[in-house]
Structures are given as C-alpha cells and as structure tokens.
C-alpha cells in the first residue's frame, strides 16, 4: 500500500468535490505578524537554526527540517511577514475580514480514499452525520463537539503527543449522499473536504469516498516530518475508513485489547509498529 497523497497542483476531477478556494491575497508586503510574535519568532528561529547547524549526524533526518524551520521563523521575525498567514488569509498583525481559513491554491495536500461498505447509504450517512460518533472509528480524533446545526469543534492528536484543534462548518449537506465541510479561522490545520455515499449496483454495497484537503503546519516540511513519525494523514484516512466499515458491517471493532498473554507478555497493542 503506498501512501496516497499528492500535492495539490491543480484542479482535477478529484477536486470537483472540494469547495472552491477563495482567492484572497495578502496586502502586498504589509507585515502580518505582531511585534511580540516577531521577536519570539526571531529568537526561536535563531535558536533552532543554531541547533540545526551543530548537528553533524543524521543531517537529513534532523538538521535539515530543523534548519528549514529555524530559517522560516527567522524570516518571519526579520520581515514581519508570515507566508503561511498570508496564504491562510489570516494573521496576528492585523485583523482580516475573512472568517474562514481554507487552503490557498497550490499549498494544500489532497487525499482521496474510498471504501465499499455492505450497508445502505442512509445508514452510513446517518452515523457519520453525527460528527460526535467519528472518534469511535477515527483513532486520531480525540473529540468532536457539535455546537449547532452546521458548526462543530474538533480536537485531534498530532505528532509528538501534541493536539491540534479547529472549528468547522458544513458547507453543503445532502442527506444520504454528501457532506461538505471546511475549517474556520484559526484552525491549527486548515482543512476542507467532502464525504460521499453512493449506492452501487447489483447489491455491491455503498461506496464511501472521502476527499480531504489540508494545509499541514510548516507546509510540505511538516507533512514530511509527520510522515516520518507514522502519522501521515493519508494512512489515517484509509485506516479510519476501514474501521468505519468494520463497525458498520459487524457492529463492533475487532480487537485483542484485554485478552490474556503469557508471563513475559507485555501490554499488547494493535498496530504493533
């Protein structure tokens, strides 16, 4: 199984499901990072870049990402310009008008994964539409709280034991067929996507397709680092869809947690690696 993610290069048939990306450009050259944050960013960048330069071993694995991160933070500190903030049409230097934080052209990472499930679309849609059910089968989610008809708050596990959170709104909701969402302003990981439920012919079940686009912290560097630590979102989406299928088809998730083992046995966990 290869990791199925591709940089978002251009619109294609697969992006048809994604909400249109608003084109809002930063005001050319205006600092969009606050003074306090510029100082913090600059100092942190210098420390990290300095540390990276002292690394003589494992330069590709450690020094390179750290060096890039340090350089990036230094740049923010020195210029007061944060490319990520610009890209996300947000910032701490000045108030932006936009209430949403979707993904600018050319920056997101797109994932499309599908699973065929032997249940009617209505049943699958209904379970999924109550977003508070999702952490049952999405292991990377800690909690989802539905705040109103179209809004919800999400908390997910991130690499290195961190968590990330975002608020989301439903852009389009077609019962038993399709749900389209996007994250709102100040999302740790801006994301947008669609889940589609399509009943197949000849009793072959329902195709559930997730199209997800997200903007990883620190862009592609962050995505590469996340992948190195085994938490690449393409795999997360695939594994989540498989568990969704297991749960919906059988009524439970297969597990060995809590079974006996011999005297030298240690706590077993699923997914050993």
């Amino acid at each position: 199984m290869s990791i199925n993610y591709t940089p978002n290069t251009n619109s294609s048939a697969q992006t048809a499901d994604l909400p249109p990306t608003a084109t809002i450009t930063g005001k050319g050259g205006h600092p969009n990072v606050s003074d306090t944050e510029r100082v913090i960013s600059g100092v942190a960048g210098a420390v990290i870049a300095g540390y990276a330069l002292t690394q003589t071993k494992n330069t590709l694995g450690t020094a390179l990402p750290l060096g890039l991160l340090g350089g990036y933070l230094l740049y923010r500190g020195a210029t007061g310009n944060c490319p990520t903030y610009t890209a996300l049409r947000t910032g701490t230097g000045q108030q932006t008008d936009s209430k949403i934080a979707v993904i600018p052209e050319g920056q997101g990472i797109k994932i499309v994964k599908a699973m065929t499930i032997q249940k009617p679309a209505s049943e699958l849609y209904t379970f999924w539409r109550n977003f508070e059910n999702l952490p049952v089968f999405m292991k990377h989610l800690e909690a989802v709280t539905v705040t109103d008809e179209t809004h919800s708050s999400w908390t997910a596990k991130a690499p290195f034991g961190q968590t990330v959170s975002w608020d989301a709104e439903i852009l389009s909701d077609e019962p038993n067929k399709r749900i389209v969402w996007r994250s709102l302003e100040h999302a740790d990981i801006p994301n947008t996507g669609t889940v589609r439920f399509e009943e197949l012919s000849a009793g072959r079940g329902t195709a559930v397709t997730v199209s997800l686009e997200y903007n990883p912290p620190l862009g592609m560097v962050g995505a590469v680092v996340a992948k190195m630590f085994g938490e690449e979102p393409g795999t997360q989406v695939h594994d989540s869809l498989r568990r969704f299928k297991e749960l919906m088809e059988t009524g439970e998730l297969p597990t060995i947690q809590g079974q006996p083992n011999g005297v030298l046995g240690r706590n077993k966990t699923e997914g050993m690696a």
Partner: peptide, 9 residues
C-alpha cells in the same frame, strides 16, 4: 474483511 485489527500490516 473485518476481523484482523492489524489489517494494515
């Protein structure tokens, strides 16, 4: 399809 918790391996 549904019985191996380590299907990914």
């Amino acid at each position: 399809d549904n019985t191996n918790p380590n299907a990914g391996l």
